Amino acid sequence: MSQEFVPDDNFSDRPNDGSTVPEQEVVQITVVGSPAAVSETIHTLYRLGFAAVGDWSPPQRGPKPGQVISVLIKRSSRKP
């Protein structure tokens, strides 16, 4: 087999122009409140097309008694 078809594993001499890996913007959205209010908010955001219900973390105990917290992490490509 010819050496010209053997892949070159040394990528350090190749310029990184960013065209293969887009930069991402990361946003974390946190909803805190009663279980009913948190659920209602998540479903409202779903109806608005913001995020799927399953994209949110399961409700966890909140900072105060009777509260829960749920988190959504959204990633989007950053435009140059």
Rank of each mutant, 00 (worst) to 15 (best):
R75N: 14
A52R: 03
D9M: 13
Y46H: 07
S77W: 06
R61D: 11
V71N: 02
R14F: 15
A52M: 08
S34I: 10
G18D: 06
E25L: 11
V6K: 15
A37F: 07
Y46Q: 05
Q67Y: 07
E25K: 04
S77Y: 07
R78P: 01
D13G: 15
M1D: 13
P65D: 01
V27F: 10
K64G: 02
L72K: 05
P80A: 05
P7N: 10
M1H: 09
P35H: 03
S12F: 14
P59I: 03
Q28N: 09
R78N: 02
D17E: 14
F5S: 15
E4D: 14
R47T: 03
A36M: 07
V26L: 07
E4M: 12
P22A: 13
S12R: 15
F11M: 12
L45Y: 05
R61H: 11
Q60E: 08
I73A: 14
S2K: 06
V68F: 03
V6C: 14
D8S: 11
S76G: 04
E25T: 08
P35N: 00
V26Q: 05
V27S: 13
P59F: 02
D17P: 09
N16V: 13
V21Y: 05
R75I: 10
D55R: 00
R61W: 06
R78F: 08
A51P: 13
I29C: 11
R47M: 03
T44A: 09
S12P: 12
T30N: 09
K79Y: 15
W56L: 02
F50W: 13
V21C: 08
I73V: 15
G54I: 01
V53P: 02
S34C: 07
P15D: 04
I69N: 05
I29A: 05
G54S: 11
S77A: 13
Q60Y: 01
L72P: 04
I29L: 13
G18L: 07
P65R: 01
L48C: 10
G33W: 09
K79I: 15
V27K: 08
L48H: 11
P58A: 09
D55I: 00
E23Y: 06
P63M: 00
Q3A: 14
A36I: 06
T20F: 14
T20A: 14
I29F: 12
Q24P: 03
L72T: 03
P80F: 02
N10P: 11
F50M: 13
V21L: 11
F11Y: 14
E4A: 14
P7V: 12
T41V: 08
R61P: 13
T44Y: 10
G18V: 04
T44S: 10
S19A: 15
V21R: 07
I73N: 13
R78T: 02
V71W: 02
S57W: 00
V31Y: 01
P58N: 01
G33K: 05
P59C: 01
I29E: 09
T30P: 04
V26M: 06
H43Q: 10
G33V: 13
V68C: 04
I73H: 13
I69H: 00
E40L: 04
G66C: 03
N10F: 12
T44C: 08
S39C: 00
H43L: 04
L45I: 07
L48T: 11
D9G: 09
E4Y: 06
